[in-house]
């Protein structure tokens, strides 16, 4: 008996099953790692998936962890849909955090009804601004955005380091840590005695807007057409550069919101490690959601769950918290492979 691999377009059911299959395959792969490390995989997955949801504090913490991921995921989707490979979510996040810190320090004696919208606006604009030059270079001079957005991540980190080491250094401790933002600039707590803040609601609103724009407006149609191919989009009479520009700037704005939200809702001051990969994690969230704006919600919650659970796994099994990062990134790669693999069948010849 011989077998042959043939290409058959996946059925809709197979596509729906991709996330489930991907999670299963990821667990099987990472179980090997857990076994090597001397842990019990079933126990580990109990702490990853179930334990965080079994008490109020850690269940809310999942939402806290998901908040920036919802926005950086939205950032990746908005750009990728238009075929603009914005790898700069990390830098745009930092730009948002940087600007929000500056605004938050200056906003004294302003009622929260004014200062909070200002914080949101400033974060969005800073993220968009940090996306501006790579977008302009791409649109006007066809300079590859992958390299420029990536390099812009490093540049903003140096600018922040410079500011923290010189102007915002904590005078008492000498740590590179900015002064605290003023109380009136703090995002409101959604639930008392938890870290969940209104940034979570902002993120949900952004996602609904993103879904509406991409699915229901002519701009969204243009962006999707552009994502399928530039030449075809140009023949269809679409303003390629203008559309690309909007996609890039709004995408950067979403990441900026994530950064500003973490300052106004969680940290209240700026440190260099404020992003620590959240911009890159947005790409995991977006790909796991198959670039579907609404699917970002379960996707970010799931990644947030793994993030929260990693702490519990570490405590209970003595495995390093980096196991959580390993599970997430394996999930990304397995999902990418699954999108391709579902199109193949093994058939008897």
């Amino acid at each position: 008996m011989k077998f042959k691999i043939v290409k058959v377009p996946a059925t809709i059911w197979m596509r729906v099953l991709i996330p489930v299959l991907s999670i299963l395959v990821t667990f099987i792969i990472t179980s090997i790692l857990i076994l090597i490390a001397g842990g019990n995989p079933l126990e580990a997955y109990y702490y990853f998936l179930i334990a965080p949801l079994s008490d109020r504090v850690s269940a809310l913490e999942v939402l806290v962890k998901a908040t920036p991921l919802l926005l950086t995921g939205a950032c990746a989707i908005f750009a990728f849909t238009a075929g603009y490979w914005n790898i700069g979510g990390e830098g745009q996040f930092l730009a948002g955090a940087f600007a929000a810190t500056g605004a938050g320090i200056m906003l004294v004696d302003v009622p929260p009804a004014v200062s909070i919208p200002v914080m949101i606006l400033v974060s969005f604009l800073a993220g968009a601004l940090w996306a501006l030059i790579p977008a302009w270079l791409k649109a006007k001079l066809a300079v590859d955005e992958v390299v420029t957005t990536l390099l812009f991540n490093s540049i903003i980190l140096f600018i922040i380091a410079y500011t923290l080491n010189n102007f915002w250094r904590n005078p008492l401790t000498g740590w590179p840590q900015s002064p605290e933002i003023s109380e009136t600039a703090h995002f409101l707590r959604l639930i008392p005695r938890s870290r969940l803040h209104m940034g979570f609601l902002v993120a949900l609103v952004v996602i609904v807007i993103e879904w509406f724009v991409l699915a229901r407006t002519s701009l969204g149609l243009k962006m999707r057409a552009l994502g399928m191919g530039k030449t075809a989009a140009r023949f269809a009479g679409i303003n390629v550069n203008g559309t690309l520009f909007i996609a890039a700037l709004v995408s950067g704005g979403f990441a900026g919101l994530a950064g500003g939200g973490d300052i106004a809702g969680i940290h209240f001051h700026l440190i260099e490690a404020v992003a620590s990969g959240l911009g890159y994690s947005g790409i995991i969230v977006a790909m796991f959601a198959a670039l579907n704006p609404l699917a970002v919600i379960p996707s970010a919650l799931f990644i947030g769950l793994i993030d929260t659970g990693a702490q519990g796994v570490s405590r209970a099994l003595g495995l390093p918290t980096y196991l959580g990062d390993t599970v997430q990134t394996t999930l990304l790669l397995v999902t990418l492979a699954m999108f391709v693999l579902v199109n193949y069948r093994i058939k008897k010849v």
Binding site: L33, W85, I87, V146, G277, Y280, I283, I284, M287, Y322, D325, T326, Q328, T329, T330, L332, L333, L336, A337, F339, V340, L341
Partner: peptide, 19 residues
């Protein structure tokens, strides 16, 4: 598999660092 090179590469950077 012909998976997108940007995303695979970036994903692998994250994976090797985490591992």
């Amino acid at each position: 598999l012909g998976v997108n090179q940007h995303v695979s590469g970036l994903g692998l950077t994250l994976l090797w660092t985490a591992l």
